[in-house]
Amino acid sequence: MREAAFIKQNRPKWKLYETDITSNPDILAERFIELTDDLSYARTFYPESEMTAYLNNLTGKFHQAIYKNKKEKGNRFAEFWKYRLPFLVAQHHRQLLYAFLIFAVACFIGALSAALDDTFVRLILGDEYVNRTLAYIESGDPMAVYKQSGETEMFLMITFNNIKVAFLAFVFGVFFSIGTFWVIFQNGIMLGAFQYFFYKQGLLLTSVLTIWIHGTLEISAIILAGCAGFVMGNSLLFPKTYSRLTSFKKGARNGLKIVVGLVPIFITAGFLEGFVTRHTEMPMPLSIGIILISAVFILYYFIIYPRLLLNRNSHAETDH
């Protein structure tokens, strides 16, 4: 893009930001990110331009505005969870929808395949797992698989594995989103086949009330990690006005922030699977309560609250 076109496209935004350095932290953070992206682009293509020096000065002002009252690192840490992460997710709800739809379709395909082919479940879950679970069902404790390891051992193993899956879903986005698609699709197939297996045994409700104690957070976080992978992958596919490299750097940075933000959720899911899910004799209302609390948290923090922040940002800019 020619420098004149770049300036014409962004001048109104820069003038607004220059005259209105708001005190709203989420608006400040978003504008600072936009300015750093513009500055990076300008430094790459117009390093000697006066416009680049202007952007550098304006970005510095926003940096000072953001951090002048942040005397402790804890404040920045809290700001990330309160504003930056949900605001970032709000900007990429379309990618999140793609990840959810792919996972949902894969679940359906997995369940349908298991219904049409008796060998499909064994192909996906493995003979050892299926035979062991059938033995547990015959013994009268179908969910005994969650009691076979020590609580701490299972917590650490499951948490590590889930974080690994999430980072794979993100990192494989570098293959133009195809890798992320495959990770999400594969996990969806597994879940669909898994749930149909218990349905066929007449244990669908039992499995749901047990597995989704931890699965609500775990599956939601995997889908969100898929969103992060699509953010990075789509930055390569659709660089818009940026160079492909600049767009990729921006997409990779934003996707990584989302994945890092999911780590506490995976830790919580691992804790639930290691210490709570094993108590298959717990009252149904307690199991349902844990599942509902987890679902409400995911819906509010990653869907409703980010939209509220985005709307607040839009209204604030309109008011000014």
Rank of each mutant, 00 (worst) to 15 (best):
residue 206 T to D: 00
residue 254 N to E: 08
residue 69 N to G: 12
residue 13 K to M: 15
residue 112 L to F: 06
residue 250 K to S: 11
residue 117 D to M: 14
residue 168 L to W: 06
residue 262 L to C: 12
residue 237 L to K: 14
residue 109 I to L: 15
residue 51 M to C: 09
residue 23 S to M: 15
residue 43 R to A: 13
residue 236 L to G: 01
residue 119 T to F: 01
residue 99 A to P: 11
residue 150 G to P: 10
residue 272 L to A: 03
residue 115 A to S: 04
residue 316 A to D: 06
residue 34 E to A: 13
residue 236 L to D: 00
residue 174 V to W: 01
residue 133 T to L: 00
residue 188 G to I: 01
residue 11 R to T: 07
residue 40 S to F: 03
residue 2 R to W: 02
residue 217 L to I: 01
residue 105 V to H: 07
residue 217 L to R: 01
residue 250 K to N: 04
residue 140 G to Q: 05
residue 278 R to V: 00
residue 196 Y to F: 15
residue 114 A to T: 03
residue 89 V to P: 06
residue 125 L to P: 05
residue 245 L to Y: 14
residue 299 L to Q: 12
residue 278 R to K: 09
residue 192 G to S: 08
residue 129 Y to G: 05
residue 198 F to R: 00
residue 102 I to E: 03
residue 275 F to Q: 08
residue 247 S to Y: 09
residue 148 Q to G: 15
residue 55 L to S: 03
residue 118 D to Y: 12
residue 274 G to L: 06
residue 129 Y to R: 04
residue 317 E to P: 14
residue 262 L to N: 11
residue 51 M to E: 07
residue 139 S to W: 02
residue 111 A to G: 08
residue 263 V to I: 12
residue 21 I to R: 12
residue 220 S to Q: 15
residue 19 T to F: 02
residue 48 E to G: 15
residue 116 L to I: 10
residue 234 N to W: 08
residue 304 I to R: 13
residue 296 V to S: 07
residue 205 L to W: 04
residue 94 R to Y: 13
residue 149 S to G: 01
residue 200 K to D: 03
residue 234 N to V: 08
residue 233 G to T: 02
residue 308 L to A: 07
residue 63 H to K: 10
residue 199 Y to F: 13
residue 155 F to W: 02
residue 26 D to R: 09
residue 42 A to F: 00
residue 173 G to N: 11
residue 165 V to L: 05
residue 8 K to Y: 02
residue 268 T to L: 03
residue 17 Y to P: 10
residue 292 L to V: 13
residue 185 F to N: 07
residue 283 P to D: 08
residue 207 S to F: 03
residue 253 R to P: 08
residue 194 F to S: 08
residue 310 L to N: 08
residue 141 D to A: 14
residue 68 K to E: 15
residue 140 G to A: 05
residue 292 L to D: 08
residue 275 F to N: 15
residue 249 K to P: 06
residue 229 G to A: 04
residue 200 K to W: 10
residue 307 R to T: 13
residue 71 K to Q: 15
residue 30 E to A: 06
residue 261 G to T: 08
residue 299 L to I: 14
residue 300 Y to A: 10
residue 185 F to K: 03
residue 11 R to N: 10
residue 287 S to V: 00
residue 28 L to M: 11
residue 89 V to R: 03
residue 273 E to D: 13
residue 188 G to M: 14
residue 217 L to E: 00
residue 46 Y to L: 05
residue 71 K to F: 05
residue 252 A to W: 08
residue 251 G to N: 06
residue 92 H to Q: 07
residue 69 N to Q: 13
residue 35 L to G: 04
residue 71 K to C: 11
residue 92 H to L: 07
residue 275 F to K: 04
residue 149 S to T: 02
residue 253 R to Q: 03
residue 205 L to M: 08
residue 49 S to Q: 09
residue 162 N to K: 01
residue 259 V to P: 12
residue 40 S to C: 07
residue 97 L to E: 09
residue 99 A to V: 06
residue 277 T to H: 00
residue 189 I to H: 00
residue 198 F to Y: 07
residue 277 T to W: 00
